Simulated scan of single mutants.
Amino acid sequence: MDDLLRDWPFFGLALALVLIVWLALPRPAAAPPRWRDPAWVLPLLWPMYLLHQFEEHGIDLLGRRYAFLADLCATLGYAGDLARCPADEATMCAVNVGGCQIAFVTAVVFRRRNPLVVACAWGIPLVNGLLHIAGSLSPPAYRPGLFTSVVLFLPLTLWMLRTVVRAGVVRPAQCVWVVVTGVLAHATLMASLLLVARGLVSRDAMLAINVLNGLLPLAIGLWASRGGAVRPLPAEGDSSQRTRMA
């Protein structure tokens, strides 16, 4: 069990490579170009975040193993005191292997029937990336996860938003829900850790909260798209798809 709590980023890296191969498979002739097709761009969320998790919890750019936990504990006020920190390896596993993967599987399942659900899930890397960048500015220093935040999270999230809006499957006004989802997901994580530190909730309850946190994009996306406010994407290979994405 202890090995799983520390080695899961390596399994995630392998899964990321499989997903990248899947996304690179040949497409039907009627399909629009990949980078203009929301059904192709939206699932990039999953392998992108797995690569980020490997930088955070696998091996970062300085060659450190599992470096993000100490960084998070320092943010919570427990610098150099991992024994008292409310976050531990089980917490990182619950958040990243539990909650995040629920959100990302949902992204693949809903990419055609409700693109807004998937766009909301992209709020997680958007806010996460901004937090990584802000945390590395004062004092200026590399922190685990910074590289993928800069080269993957921000540019790909902006491209995703451009793609879904131009395709007409998400309205510009609905993009606010992407930000709301990311903020609430991170606020839930931090609040649960602070409540554990103050003895107001149990550690097991905190772990469960952060696994269930993965359902937040689904809940917000479905609520924001109630009443048919989102147009689904056509099936892959639909001859009308290229015209709609043009």
Rank of each mutant, 00 (worst) to 15 (best):
M1R: 13
D3N: 14
D7Y: 14
W8G: 03
F10E: 15
G12Q: 03
L17F: 14
V18H: 12
L19D: 14
V21K: 14
W22D: 15
P32Y: 00
P33D: 14
P38F: 01
V41D: 00
L45F: 10
W46S: 01
F54P: 02
E55G: 12
G58N: 04
D60E: 10
R64G: 06
R64Q: 13
R65N: 15
A70P: 01
L76C: 10
G77F: 03
Y78K: 02
D81T: 02
G98V: 07
G99Q: 06
I102Y: 03
I102T: 10
A107Y: 01
V109Y: 05
F110Y: 15
F110V: 13
R111A: 07
L116K: 01
V118A: 06
A121K: 01
G123F: 06
N128F: 05
L130S: 08
A134M: 13
P140Q: 07
Y142G: 09
P144Q: 09
V151H: 10
W159P: 10
V164K: 00
V165H: 02
P172L: 08
A173W: 06
Q174L: 09
W177V: 03
V180N: 12
T181S: 12
L184F: 13
V196C: 11
G199I: 05
L200C: 10
S202Y: 03
R203G: 08
A205D: 15
P232V: 02
P234F: 00
A235G: 06
D238A: 04
S240Y: 00
